Simulated assay, not measured.
Amino acid sequence: MTPCSSLTAELGLENLRGATLAEVDAAAALQHRVDRKYLVPLDRARRLIARLSDSHHVLDLGGRRTTSYLSTYFDTEQLGSWRAHVQGRRRRWKVRTRLYAEDGLCRAEVKTKDGRGATVKHALKVPAAEYGELTAQVTEFVDRVLDRAGVPVTAKELSAAAEVRYVRATLADLDHGSRVTLDGTLSCHRDDRTAALDPGHVLIETKGGAQPASADRLLLGMGVRPVSLSKYIVGQSLLTPGLPDNDVRRLARAHFTTVVNPAPLPAERIRAA
Rank of each mutant, 00 (worst) to 15 (best):
A196H: 03
T258W: 00
D183N: 07
V138Q: 00
D54I: 04
L251G: 07
T66P: 03
R98N: 05
A195I: 01
A136C: 06
T185V: 13
E109V: 03
L238T: 00
R168K: 08
A27N: 09
L30E: 12
D192G: 03
T66F: 05
A263H: 10
R168A: 02
E268L: 08
L39R: 07
G223W: 05
Y166Q: 09
R47Y: 00
T170H: 00
V40Q: 02
L11K: 01
K231F: 04
L42M: 12
D183K: 06
L30M: 14
F256W: 14
Y232D: 01
L243C: 00
R17V: 11
V151K: 05
V40D: 02
S81L: 05
T66I: 11
P266L: 00
V110L: 06
S187M: 10
E268S: 13
D25C: 07
T154H: 03
H255K: 14
G150S: 02
E140T: 14
E109L: 10
D60M: 07
K121C: 10
G150A: 01
H176Q: 13
N261Q: 13
E140K: 05
V24I: 08
D75K: 06
R249M: 11
R47N: 05
P244Q: 01
S228H: 07
A215E: 12
H57I: 09
R91N: 10
T72N: 01
A50D: 14
K94E: 11
R190Q: 07
L182F: 06
K207T: 02
W82E: 04
L220W: 08
G184E: 06
R92Q: 15
A252E: 11
K37H: 14
Y100R: 05
F141L: 11
K111Q: 08
L197M: 08
P262E: 12
Y100P: 06
P3H: 07
G63V: 01
S228N: 12
D175E: 12
H122C: 08
L158T: 02
S55R: 15
S71L: 12
L42N: 04
S81W: 03
S81N: 05
A136E: 15
A160M: 08
A29E: 14
Q236W: 10
D147W: 12
H57Y: 09
A129Q: 12
W82Y: 15
K94Q: 13
P127K: 12
H189V: 04
R225W: 06
V180A: 12
A215Y: 09
K37G: 05
G242H: 06
A129N: 09
G80R: 14
V142P: 01
L48Q: 10
R168F: 00
V227Q: 11
V167G: 10
R148Y: 09
L124T: 04
V24E: 02
R193E: 00
P244W: 04
S159A: 14
F74A: 04
E140R: 07
K121M: 12
T257S: 15
T257P: 03
